[in-house]
Simulated assay, not measured.
Amino acid sequence: MSPFPGILPDEPIDSVAHLIQTALTPIFMLSGIGTLLNLFNTRLARVSDHIEKSNDALATTKAPTERRHLRQHIRHLHRRTLLLDASILLAAVGGAATCGAAFVLFLGSLRDSSVASWLVVMFGMALICTVGALAAFLCDSLAAWHGLRMTTSWARSTHPKD
């Protein structure tokens, strides 16, 4: 007998717990994707600021080796912006797919119909896009690390310790 007659059906606790888990999964995933989007956008803003400073430095410097290094550094930063753009695009599509999965869950509960295939497609697409966004962000992180090593080695070669 249900503790709330007429409100909650007489269902085992496992099926109710499963329903709650299913309903909350897209919400937690969307929250995580939102956090990733914030991180990616912040990182892109920092790289864009660095490009602007490097372009300003390129406009004022006359030394050919330093100009060549600055041009190479700007090209490297542009490649990083492409990786971050890909991260943002994939995360946004993953977020949209997560919203789609939540919407399919909602429609399924309203219509009491079988929407399992749509749910699998939408949630699967959300997961794939989120993994792709993280992979592109990892590539940007590796590119940043490589750029830092290149800049450090260039600085050591042009400004040796006395």
Score class of each variant (00 low, 15 high):
M1P: 06
T81M: 12
T130M: 11
L58A: 13
R46Q: 07
L30A: 13
R156M: 07
A59L: 11
N38V: 15
S113T: 07
H50A: 11
R68A: 05
R111S: 07
N55E: 10
N55F: 04
R68W: 02
I128L: 15
A102S: 08
S114Q: 14
A126H: 03
N38R: 13
K62T: 10
T25S: 14
F28S: 03
E66Y: 01
L83K: 04
L8Q: 10
I13H: 05
R67Y: 00
L107D: 03
R79A: 07
D49F: 11
V115I: 08
S54M: 09
P3R: 11
V115W: 01
D14L: 15
G94K: 05
C99F: 06
L110Y: 12
I7D: 07
F4W: 09
R67F: 08
A57D: 10
L83Y: 04
L58K: 08
P26K: 00
T61H: 05
I128E: 10
L138P: 02
L77V: 06
L105R: 12
I20R: 09
V47E: 06
T42P: 00
I88T: 09
H69D: 02
S141L: 15
G34D: 05
P64S: 07
F40M: 08
V47K: 04
R149A: 14
L37Y: 00
L19N: 04
L37N: 07
H50F: 03
I33E: 03
P9W: 02
I74E: 02
H76V: 01
P3S: 06
G100E: 00
N55A: 14
T42A: 14
W154T: 00
D14K: 15
R46T: 05
L82Y: 02
D112W: 03
S109P: 10
E52R: 15
S157F: 05
A63G: 02
D112T: 14
S109A: 13
A91N: 06
L44P: 01
G34R: 13
A144I: 03
A102E: 02
K161D: 06
P12N: 12
C139N: 08
H146R: 15
L36G: 07
M125G: 09
S54I: 04
M150K: 13
G32F: 12
G94V: 03
G34Y: 13
S31I: 14
I74A: 05
G108I: 00
T25D: 14
A102F: 04
R46A: 12
D10P: 02
T25L: 15
A144G: 07
I88N: 02
L90H: 05
A17W: 00
S153E: 01
S54A: 15
A23V: 07
M1E: 05
Q21A: 15
A97C: 14
V131Y: 14
R71S: 04
L24R: 01
F103V: 11
L84C: 01
V104A: 11
V120N: 06
G34C: 12
D140V: 04
V121M: 10
T81H: 10
A126P: 07
A45E: 15
H146Y: 10
A133F: 01
I27E: 03
P160I: 06
G95A: 11
R46L: 13
L134I: 13
N38D: 00
R71Q: 11
Q21K: 14
A102T: 03
I27C: 07
A116I: 14
D140A: 10
L30V: 13
A144D: 08
L8E: 01
R43C: 04
L77W: 00
S153P: 02
H146C: 09
L24S: 00
S141A: 15
